[in-house]
Design a binder for these strands. Sequence first.
DNA 1: CGATTCGTTGAATTGAGTCAACGAGAGTGG
DNA 2: CCACTCTCGTTGACTCAATTCAACGAATCG
Lengths: 257, 257
Amino acid sequence: MQSIMAEQLSDNTTTALNCRGSAFQTKCGNCRLNAICLPIAVQEPDLDALDTVVHRNKPLRKGDHVFRENDNFNSIYAIRSGFVKAYRLTDDGKEQVTGFYFPGEIIGMDGISQNKHSISAKALETAAICEIPFDDIESLSTRFPSMQRHLFSLMSQEIIQDQQLITLLSKNTAEERISALILSISDRNAARKLSTTSFRLPMSRTDIGNYLGLTVETVSRVFSRFQKNNILEVNNKEITILDLEAIRSIISPQQEA
Amino acid sequence: MQSIMAEQLSDNTTTALNCRGSAFQTKCGNCRLNAICLPIAVQEPDLDALDTVVHRNKPLRKGDHVFRENDNFNSIYAIRSGFVKAYRLTDDGKEQVTGFYFPGEIIGMDGISQNKHSISAKALETAAICEIPFDDIESLSTRFPSMQRHLFSLMSQEIIQDQQLITLLSKNTAEERISALILSISDRNAARKLSTTSFRLPMSRTDIGNYLGLTVETVSRVFSRFQKNNILEVNNKEITILDLEAIRSIISPQQEA
DNA sequence: CGATTCGTTGAATTGAGTCAACGAGAGTGG
DNA sequence: CCACTCTCGTTGACTCAATTCAACGAATCG
């Protein structure tokens, strides 16, 4: 039981420590996240080639940066465990959270166009990160077309995600925004074969509010309201979805055609 | 003189008709927009190769689609003249405008990851569009690394732009959003060597509101307020920036550190 | 274990939305 | 050329969802 717990947690929260054991030396071919992080398109030979260029750096602690805004762009990063928050500073010095990233997901592609990062990425808790130098990726990409396509694909996905967030921010109420975030996390947990209904939110209420364009107070109130209506069970950062359908219906209100 | 006029207009509004004349057959190397649309990185041989794959389709009329959401993804498109609005339908059937595109700019890369377009793109007025099959681009990209990098760069730029919009939507007031849009258009006009202070907004108030997450009424009120405060002169879609500094200062309020 | 940050709740305020009316232009047809 | 329609933009009055301000309890961390 205890060990199942550990396994459960292993790419959820306190993982990174375990990484010294197995994950830390794992090759991409063995990594159980590769279905997410790598393309199905990338085949055997590509994979071996990729392995030779991936740096498996030592784990970051909570608050450490993967990279910072304006850092030179050299690499992209795959999250092996832990959670990462991406953000940038607005002209007037406030923080704008632009995304949360989960194990198996890729960050850093924002830097390609200007050769420096346009956002900062910091670990929300202990995190293990694979670093992949972009030069290597580029040359691999010219050799393995499937690799190139995957990269294009990743970036294009990022664009689609951003546009969904744009819609969320410009059209939806506080309840809808928060429902969407919860559902997004639930879906991403599904991809990692974790519970879709019960999980720990790795980020603070402040970060949630910032990301969704709401104040902390509003976020808190919505959580409370959801709890009162038996849609969610909220226990600090632990949440359990009690009524998934309710959440879905909040996001897509009945079309009033 | 007449011909200069035509040339002048050629990437502004009513162009497309003239395109049969000169622009329509122009090669990328001659097109005066290539500094925007193509990378500085793309050198002579790449350029010639590119020319062989670009289709210069017949002009679109106002309201025609460049492509539609869920269309198969085959090509990306460079706008040679006219203006394009990108939008997608939300789950509950409403329209979300995701961007406005000007001559020299590239659209369609949203389709790469899913092999179908995630947004629709329609001409806001008569528009001439260069179509570039993505298969060709991919194979060119493996042959010309500078080309590949440029593509990555374009997509990465799109991500940065989207993230700026996200910030705008989640943190800024109606006045700030509209100021930002005006300034963005002004800047893009600068890149095309057009007036930065006096221009025609190619999109409707409704589209502006939709894009910025505001209602038509609010957009209209802000324009009126700006006019009253001698920041803008508004004449229907024609606007003249009277006080650029005021607009800038609206966007970046004094840091209250 | 105290300090500091984080989260929750309440009361008052407000910026933008909604509803409604109207005017200006663009296009159509007699 | 005028009358008619339809869409688009503007303005006003009212409403409301979310913010702001404030206070307090809970969690986390040296």
